[in-house]
Simulated scan of single mutants.
Amino acid sequence: MKCVVLITGHYWHSQRKAGFHWLADAFWRKGWEVVFLTAPISWLSVIRRDYRLAYPVIQEANKLLPVQPKLWSYVWFTLWHPANLRWNFLNYLSRGLFQLYSKLPLGIVEAEIRRADVLIFESTPALLLFQRCKNLNPKAQFIYRVSDDLRLLRNHPVVLETEKQIVAQFDLVSVPSRNIYQLFAGLSNLKLDLHGIRKDLFQNNYPNPYPSKDAADTPNLIFVGNSHFDYDFLEQASQLFPNWRFHIIGPIANLPQKPNIITYGELPFLETIPYIKYADIALQIRAYSPGIESLTDSLKVIQYTYCQLPIIAPRYLSSSRPHVFYYQLGDASSIQQALIAAQNYDRSQIATNDIYSWDELVSKWVQILQ
């Protein structure tokens, strides 16, 4: 039986289901043994009140725990990890310490790394483990799944430098957006692989979670996410369209208190699917930050598209998708125009035939590596 180790910033039991969860699931359903290795996480994460601490990551630290047969979770909890200290001087002083991250004891998971057939790295500070894993297992094949632009995540300079040094050494560099593809253009091992989805889950029947509409002009708009939220858009849009309902799923604090803004907090992934399926318009309303352009092809955009939802996004997230309607940040007129255009768009025109499942993506990788 083949074994894959996925080195990711996500925690297996998190309610937030990211691409790496679905990649692990797809490998497992193909009959592979899967080790889901969560890193980095350390006492610095505790100081910064990392959201993963809401789960029992400290209790599970450095234990190889079975999730189900042939699927394991391992939280590599360390004293420290490379983290942006916000001040250039502190980042400079910490370089030497952070470069030692890869030498910290791996514990029992080291044996899993030694016997793995494939190791898949996410774009996190755990990239510093690459050379150590290569030394431990030179026969394994290595994939870099660049789930995020490291600049957007504001990583420590030593992480950015490490990525630059090692990226050409991977057997495959797989990127989920056209914007990130441009960052690595010229690499011979580079592939553009947009996010997949669990088509079977989205095709299931679910009860409609929304209240019955009072009239045809009362659409339900959905946002699902946890970062870079454009508060100003929601403030203005909810005023412009007081009869429209804006549904916000995710740990977004300090939202406007209005009758037509309905908040749910963070929900398990499966509970979010009906809200997406039965919505009328999707919101990809992201405030600007350097590197935000990488979200043009985010997992949520793929899910919204699969459900044939018109999408609202700021102009700096422009793409070639005809069902995305854009506004200028802070401009009420463009917000109004985008929302009206989305409401009037013929959803049946939204193509979904080019969206593939996670199983199809994993099969593609296996074929490339063979």
Rank of each mutant, 00 (worst) to 15 (best):
Q169C: 02
N260A: 10
L221Y: 01
E266N: 07
L329A: 09
E33C: 11
H10C: 12
P138Q: 04
P251R: 14
D217P: 01
L187E: 06
L295Y: 14
L106R: 09
K70M: 10
E161T: 08
L192S: 04
L65Y: 00
W32M: 05
G196T: 07
F233Y: 14
I47Y: 08
Y275I: 00
P290I: 08
I58Q: 09
V173N: 05
I248E: 03
P138D: 06
F77V: 03
E235P: 02
Q236L: 09
Q284A: 15
P157H: 08
N353K: 11
T124K: 06
F27S: 09
P56W: 08
F89L: 15
R16W: 15
Q337E: 11
D171G: 10
A26P: 13
F36R: 04
I262H: 11
S188W: 04
L270W: 01
P56I: 05
I355T: 01
G330L: 09
Q165Y: 06
S94M: 13
A168K: 11
F170Y: 14
Q59T: 09
S42W: 03
Q169G: 06
T296Q: 11
D50R: 01
Q328P: 00
W244Q: 02
D200H: 12
A26V: 10
R114H: 07
D232Y: 04
K213S: 12
P268S: 11
S94P: 07
Y55D: 07
A18G: 11
P125H: 00
F233W: 13
F246E: 01
P256I: 03
S333D: 13
I368L: 14
A351M: 12
F20K: 04
I335T: 10
L329F: 07
V159T: 04
D359E: 13
S177Y: 06
R347H: 01
P314W: 09
F184E: 05
I166N: 04
D280I: 11
I311W: 00
I7P: 08
S147H: 00
A216P: 00
I276V: 15
N155V: 12
V158E: 07
L37Q: 08
V158N: 07
W43I: 05
P251N: 15
M1R: 10
A185T: 10
W22Q: 14
R132M: 00
S94V: 01
W244G: 04
A237D: 00
E122K: 04
Y316C: 05
G330H: 05
I252G: 08
L79F: 09
S363C: 11
L153E: 14
Q68K: 15
D148E: 10
I355P: 02
G9C: 06
Y326P: 03
C133W: 14
Y55G: 03
P209I: 11
R49N: 10
F184L: 10
R86E: 13
N254W: 03
V46L: 09
L153Q: 15
H10A: 15
V301E: 12
F142P: 05
R286V: 15
I302F: 01
K300C: 08
S227L: 01
D280P: 03
L6D: 05
A351K: 15
I252L: 09
D331N: 12
N344Y: 05
I276E: 08
R114C: 14
Q131P: 00
I273H: 06
A216T: 02
L79T: 07
D346T: 03
R245Y: 09
H81W: 06
L23K: 15
P56N: 05
G291K: 02
